[in-house]
């Protein structure tokens, strides 16, 4: 059995035919909101070009954990973190890593679609221009097109790039947000319940899209939807009360969970 997870320094290998390179290694990550400890020592390995799903009941710390990966928690003044998240040999939680640089490497898609109230084009082009990825003009146009294509939105919006991003439907807005994240050319995309505000058809579209995107990017997704995790994720981590109870490849996790609590949650006995 390969279920008990990642002790520090010893990444677990899984019962997979292909082994994947590590994108992020999280070791003993603790986080406090003021006095409340929300994460109690998380160890987790995130594999490159895979989808890792984080599941668990509300308030279990999965979203908090996700926001640690691009240091969005830095925006909350009362938050304090300990431990390490290693990426490219560096601890991204340390002062030596600039959180702005980190967020360029680790993009994010939020629960509620939040396109900028600007044109569709501008939504995608804003960040690359800011990071000097491409000069304005033809190359920028191309980047906008490839990003929108990668997000599966190009055919729907190519004739209305000038209209506001907020005028699109919910599912289209979320794909626009994905295009916006892709345009910065990150290596990891974090998704915080990306389909919870969408209808089933839009959800299916986004899920298909995630499947395509993992060829190029590493995806970490928080979801409340067990079926969604089972459908799309290569690995799944079950969070409970600020701890990772179980972490395994999705097939194993959903067929033969080793922990009673995981099984109870997956089968809907609580959560």
């Amino acid at each position: 059995m390969t279920t008990k997870l990642a002790s520090p320094g010893a990444p677990v290998t899984f019962n997979q035919e292909t082994t994947h390179d590590l994108e992020l290694t999280v070791r003993d990550l603790k986080l406090w909101y003021g006095e409340n400890q929300a994460l109690k020592g998380i160890d987790l390995d995130i594999y490159e070009n895979n989808i890792t799903a984080l599941i668990g009941p509300s308030g279990c710390g999965k979203s908090t954990f996700l926001r640690c990966l691009n240091r969005m928690n830095d925006l909350i003044p009362t938050v304090r973190t300990e431990g390490e998240i290693m990426m490219e040999g560096r601890n991204v939680l340390s002062k030596e890593v600039d959180e702005v640089a980190l967020r360029k490497k680790v993009g994010m898609v939020f629960q509620k679609p939040n396109p900028f109230p600007k044109s569709i084009y501008e939504n995608v082009a804003y960040a690359p221009r800011m990071h000097d990825i491409v000069p304005a003009g033809k190359e920028q146009d191309e980047l906008v097109e490839t990003s929108l294509r990668a997000a599966g939105l190009w055919e729907e919006v190519k004739d209305q790039l000038g209209s506001p991003g907020t005028s699109l439907s919910g599912g289209q807005q979320q794909r626009l947000c994905i295009a916006r994240a892709i345009a910065v050319q990150p290596s990891v995309i974090l998704m915080d319940e990306p389909t919870s505000a969408l209808d089933p058809i839009s959800t299916a579209t986004i899920e298909d899209l995630m499947y395509e995107l993992k060829k190029e990017y590493t995806i970490v997704v928080v979801t409340h939807n067990m079926q969604q995790a089972a459908r799309i994720a290569d690995y799944t981590a079950f969070f409970h009360l600020g701890e990772v109870i179980e972490y395994n490849d999705t097939a194993t996790m959903f067929s033969t969970p080793s922990e009673k609590r995981t099984e109870d949650y997956i089968t809907g006995r609580y959560g």
């Binding site: 969005m72 640089a101 967020r103 396109p115 900028f116 800011m130």
Partner: peptide, 25 residues
């Protein structure tokens, strides 16, 4: 805040977030 998060999420600094998104709005 969702607008600020969107801007921070693509790697804008605080001032860029304010200048490009929050102030115009």
């Amino acid at each position: 805040d969702s607008i600020r998060h969107a801007a921070f999420g693509v790697g804008a600094t605080r001032w860029q977030t304010v200048r490009d998104h929050v102030l115009p709005l």
